[in-house]
Design a protein around this nucleic acid. Structure first.
Lengths: 332, 332
DNA sequence: TTGAAAGCGCTACCAA
DNA sequence: TTGGTAGCGCTTTCAA
């Protein structure tokens, strides 16, 4: 910037004004400065700028996901990017892989770079690292998780009602023995969906059979084993509700292998590509990750714009998509 | 930092030394400083630090993808993050959606934040915005695209040989009329895969039939239409090679709708989840996006470590995965 | 081993 | 309309 000022024969502050589009610079000086910028390939340094500026904004936010490569997470990521772009804000992302230590390190890395705010899928049960930063004044929005503190906004889907609807849908097709496959129960969504399953059974007057419930199952392979085991019970389930997309995948494999994919009903939580091209097409409780991300980002920017209202929990609805697997009727 | 120094009763520089783990501070002062940091919830400001530091490193790199939500892109993203994490480096990402204007704006946003380097899937045909930054000294690595300049490293898969192998595989199962579906030809990979298709035909002594070639097809829906049209030809193809994953999806739909999915062979470029659960299971030329991203990131960090050797084009091999759809034989 | 002073690139503030 | 000066939080340099 000094060089630009020298070449244009103006003061530093005039260059600053031109770069930031501030009014009150004569057209002639503006032209000289612009030309000098071009000649010198000058690139404004926004890090230095934000260091000095009164609001200290970096126009950068941090995004902590479980895994940026996961289709659900990456859709959330993309939605947040789209909102951020409108505000000329960039997104720093990190994958925790469910590791609280990694979460803490990413939060530190974000704050040391002075991000304006954070959107996170918290993983540590106590949410300590994130709560501390919130208390120190960093705007934070949780996505796909509820906060243990009333100080943090969160945006989630209606996990529990969604799961309940899946069970009721299966029951409406005559099923009374509905199996459940759920992720590790320390994950908030896994617990919520399980509770939704329990409520669904109750609402239909069905008994909860412990043998038909498999929780703490994670990953495709373990899900396949769990379902295969369930199918070998003396009284196997006639329908299955899988509460996470990898578990759905494992269940499909197990049903295929057993040759029962057209006889046992299946509804999975979370949609996935090719679901309608499978045999039978897979019915799901579809989440809307794009809307989830957009809503979370919008909330964060409201906070950045000075909104000091009490933290809210925004719920984005899920949608039952009936494609076939969930409509296989119970056959005596 | 001033407050920490005051509370600990030491000089600024001593705090700096403790924060950065520099040697030469007595255990007693170290303890006092550490305690003050804890009491004040002090968070080091790495933006201010990098402004003053001799190497001006921000420990942040920029990543320009076509779409962070695309499974291929997000796998690349994740791999880069994994390598970056080893170096305590964060990743700023952006989606160009193939728009050169957006590309330019992201590159500007990255450089103004003083990223240490850039990994990009360039979209502008002239690659101008990126080449300029490279000339100004910014380390850049292209991923999934070749550079038009000899000054930029790139990492891609073996698109052309991969496509050739697909054609040869189909020909080996007796097919002589092999259709081609390709993405917009300004995309480098689309062109390469088409050339691979042409070479594959030639290597098997097959004629290129213009009616069986559909280029500039983008997205699932248009692919479905294109294949449906192809199937209505007086002499339709007996096998199809789709050169991109969305096109594969469209082709599968078209074949299903026509009831020909078990009669016309299909090989797609780029693997996708559930490919083996479809009927028939889909044979693909699988890319390895994780290895692609890792390799690109490793190259960038070599540059950041001072490697000044001539730019290289690293090729990551693809792999033919035979699952069934590509092995449907030609029936007279 | 410790710290004071200078200055990274920029903007706030105020004076001309 | 223009620009000088101070200083953001930190590291570098150098002196004690």
């Amino acid at each position: 910037m000094r060089q630009v000022a020298a070449l244009a024969g103006v003061g530093l502050k005039t260059v600053s004004r031109v770069v930031n589009g501030e009014p009150g610079v004569s057209p002639e000086l503006t032209a000289r400065v612009t030309e000098a910028i071009r000649l010198l390939d000058y690139r404004p340094d926004s890090t230095a700028s934000s260091l000095r500026r009164a609001d200290r904004r970096t126009a950068t936010i941090g995004l902590l996901l479980e895994d940026v490569a996961n289709p659900f997470s990456s859709a959330v990521n993309r939605a947040i990017e789209d909102v951020a772009r409108q505000r000329e804000t960039l997104v720093l992302s990190g994958s925790s892989d469910g590791d609280p230590g990694r979460e803490t390190r990413y939060v530190r890395a974000f704050t040391s770079r002075r991000v304006d705010g954070l959107i996170a899928v918290p993983v540590a049960p106590d949410q300590q690292a994130l709560l501390t930063e919130r208390q120190l004044g960093l705007p934070i929005v949780f996505v796909d998780r509820l906060s243990v503190s009333p100080a943090i906004d969160s945006v989630t889907v209606d996990n529990r009602p969604g799961a309940t609807r899946a069970v009721q849908h299966l029951a409406a097709h005559g099923h009374q023995r509905i199996g459940f496959l759920g992720d590790v129960r320390t994950i908030w969504t896994a617990e919520e969906r399980y509770l939704g399953y329990v409520e669904g059974l109750a609402s239909c007057g069905l008994r909860l059979e412990p043998g038909l419930v498999q929780r703490d199952v994670s990953g495709v392979d373990r899900a396949q084993v769990a379902v295969t085991t369930m199918l070998l019970l003396p009284e196997p389930p006639t329908a299955i509700f899988t509460a996470q997309n990898l578990l759905t995948q494992g269940a499909i494999r197990a049903l295929r292998t057993a040759g029962l994919h057209n006889h046992i009903a299946l509804i999975g939580f979370d949609d996935f590509p090719f679901a309608e091209l499978l045999d039978p097409p897979v019915s799901v409780i579809a989440q809307n990750p794009h809307l989830l991300g957009m809503t979370a980002a919008a909330r964060l920017f409201e906070r950045l714009d000075g909104d000091e209202s009490p933290a809210r929990h925004v719920i984005v609805p899920t949608q039952l998509i009936a494609r076939g697997s969930g409509e296989i009727p119970f056959n005596q």
